[in-house]
Design a protein around this nucleic acid. Sequence first.
DNA 1: TGCGTTTGTCAAAGCGGTTTGGAAAGCACG
DNA 2: CGTGCTTTCCAAACCGCTTTGACAAACGCA
Lengths: 343, 343
Amino acid sequence: MTLKEFSELLGLSPTTVSRALGGYPEVREETRRRVLEAARAHGYRPNRRAAALATGRAMAIGHVIPTALNHEMVNPVFADFIAGAGDVYARAGYDMLLSVVPDGDELRAYRHMANTGNVDGLIVHGPRADDPRLGLLRATGLPFVVHGRIPGDDTDYSFVDVDNRRAFGRAADLLLDLGHRRIALLNGIATMDFARRRRDGVVGALVARGIEADPALISATEMTEHAAHAATRRMLDLADPPTAFLASSLIMGIGVRRALGDRGLTMGRDVSVVIHDDMLGYLTNGTEVPIFTATRSSVRAAGRRCAEILLARITGDSAPPVQEVWECELVLGGSTGPALTGA
Amino acid sequence: MTLKEFSELLGLSPTTVSRALGGYPEVREETRRRVLEAARAHGYRPNRRAAALATGRAMAIGHVIPTALNHEMVNPVFADFIAGAGDVYARAGYDMLLSVVPDGDELRAYRHMANTGNVDGLIVHGPRADDPRLGLLRATGLPFVVHGRIPGDDTDYSFVDVDNRRAFGRAADLLLDLGHRRIALLNGIATMDFARRRRDGVVGALVARGIEADPALISATEMTEHAAHAATRRMLDLADPPTAFLASSLIMGIGVRRALGDRGLTMGRDVSVVIHDDMLGYLTNGTEVPIFTATRSSVRAAGRRCAEILLARITGDSAPPVQEVWECELVLGGSTGPALTGA
DNA sequence: TGCGTTTGTCAAAGCGGTTTGGAAAGCACG
DNA sequence: CGTGCTTTCCAAACCGCTTTGACAAACGCA
């Protein structure tokens, strides 16, 4: 059913019908009611593509989500982030365009979205050191919001990030207060901005107490259960093994727990573990009592907020960029305890 | 840069340029080369919206992913499924349109996609008993492929499913062969088609050996770590607790393992556990030796296959529906062992 | 050389909406 | 009754591309 057909059906011109549906003031209230009713009755909905072409607005937001080149891994937090953002889009009548591409093709995907004009804005995921995407997007003029931050460039773009440095600094402080001195960090891949900040936070906390960070106790891997398990085993085999672990995600924490179990060690008694909890819907860190002591911040909420900011930038007039750094909560669970002095 | 501008730049008509780019045979080879080169040099890309409007093809596939009404949960397997499908789309030049909606608004989302014509086809996720979506989609005439099956209706639509019934039947058989008689099933929500089939598989295997399925040993919940943990604890508290658990996902298996740990029980020795492994990228079930004994089938591969079938149906002429039921692998890991007769 | 066929290119008509610039109708006023 | 304002609606242009039908140029053949 096209607008033309539909308007003929009503005995009105396409113009009037379009205006009635669009909420413009130039139509009589009664006419509008009649049109709206008929639209509902006949199931008429304007064709998005045509409307997009005519208005220049695509009514869609693009997300480019990279899959690691080798193991085809999709970061599990994307699912929750996207759920949050998608909810906001849906309410505002926007669609979400997803592009899943291998790491190397990312730029091409962004360029594609920018050129073909089927999105009004973009969310940038997983910023890295020397991220080339920012320059590209600035050049296109397309509005965008970054989830995270570009290292060394906090100037003129919008972002939502958690205070990773502070969160991991606090987590390390907690472990230090409990008497731990050999503290391991199971981090994400080193080039990722959040991983760098987390590392800085931990190293900073250690240094503040006059403890030198031991490179052997810092691993930077994919954030999988398996990688965490392997790293934990390796570190436990050291001559002077760590008494505490900081894991960059709940999934990594599970890997740590499994490795401890392999060795007959009990988490929270023999070895302490602190994780960062993204509050994923399907992997909650306990209900009343947290399983893991954790720094936490909802990635779904971040998705929602990024979407809001982006939509505001698209529709609103050129406001200054919005930059939010969220503080993490620090929750105490059963996975931490005082360092065993005898060990 | 529009086609008109671009063609003026070249001193050709829009028609010729369009044809040169589109690969039509009516242009001289030399002209085509010149056009392609200029397009690359000036970064010209046809506007998708306009092309879509003109051709009637949207060059996009829609996915509606529901979030549970209460706890806002996004099924983690979506991420991997979408990664697989997205890869196929990208290669074929299709975009992926995602709609994240609350369970109740699902139908509206499908109708929306069908009416506004910004997708050429749809993937249906998580079919349930009496699923109303099938009827709706049939009515719209939009091509679609179901991931899973609609209960009691295997007639005229395309789907890709794993043989859930057989997989869980085999898993139960394995446990029975090991001497287990009290076998628990931690299943997904009862209305989901896959959950029903899995249940049937387990119950069937038990009945075949003259064992009555104990309703107390079957739980049907969200497939979260937490739900599995809670259900396991509850069952372990029974007067006659299970000696083996069948869990519907790796994440649930982790919940079982944690509950066993709480009780000081060792998985594979005191209690056996078999899971279904979707082979998610970030949650591998061990590397060489599987952690859990598992039935397994890659959900990413399923995503890929669904996408292929859908694209074939969209572009190709009306072929008969493609219906694939995949056999699961059964891999033996460290989580299963003979039933302790003394217990 | 003349005529029918390709071959390469183009003008113009859509695709299904939105939006601009009027026009007709209705009303008040002198 | 003519004039000036609103209000309500409409015709037509436009968004950027694809595609049909036509046309000039080049070609083959008698």
